[in-house]
Amino acid sequence: MRRGGIGFSGIMLAIGLLFLYVPIVLLILFSFNESRLVTVWGGWSLRWYEALFSDQQMLRAAWLSIRIAAITATIAVVLGTMAGVALVRFGNFRGRFLFTGMIATPLVMPEVIIGLSMLLMFVAMDQAIGWPAGRGMLTIIIAHATFCAAYVTVVVQSRLGALDRSLEEAATDLGARPLKVFFVITLPIIAPALIAGWLLAFTLSLDDLVVASFVTGPGATTLPMLVFSSVRLGVSPQVNALGSIIVALVSIGIILATALMHRRERLRQRDEHLARAG
């Protein structure tokens, strides 16, 4: 690196960082704005945070979104793990090609199409077998779990593919039945991938506006839907406050995760040192 002088790359870095972070900084800044007008500074205040926490509609939507995301992520991890295991371990089963295609489709299909096709299916099912009756939280969960499972499958598949097959064979050889091998050996070893998949699915579900808008019914308004509709009526500084809270939560999460990884890395290095020493 060159000392003294900022240079071209330094300037480009600064521009890049500004481009990424100025909007977020402004969002946080204006969440403490006294003024009712979003773009005019009127002094410091916490009134929009107060307003946010007393807004029952907003809180209900947030709680609904979190519940949907948690349930979705759990279902997606179960389905995605099963699909991943089938793809990696079952060899060239019949219909594998079709199965792979079905897994990949939600990853590349526009959300509008997913949402629309889901809606059509739910309506048809309601008419044909009476389940799911009406639309709401349940239909959102089903729709979200469907496309989130695809992402989890990809994560699990790559982790399983890298897993040494002989670990499972060794467990079998030592007398464990196949199902036990899966739960006692395979699952604990691929656990990091399952956690990553769960978090990914949670985020995707929490974030989703399009699919949820299609398949929801009266009474089930998720947070993104509420924010989007309230912004359409005119941006309220309350949304800034909500945005700031989310940014804060995400930042804390990232900092914790990084610290944890650093600690693990240090421990691992110490262990390796120990192993070499004897």
Binding site: D164, E169, T172, D173, L174
Partner: peptide
């Protein structure tokens, strides 16, 4: 007879120790 019921045990080239 499936591998988990055979009266033999195998030591793998990679050792296949359970990392956890």
């Amino acid at each position: 007879v499936p591998p988990h019921r055979r009266p033999v045990n195998m030591m793998f080239q990679s050792y296949a120790l359970f990392p956890h």
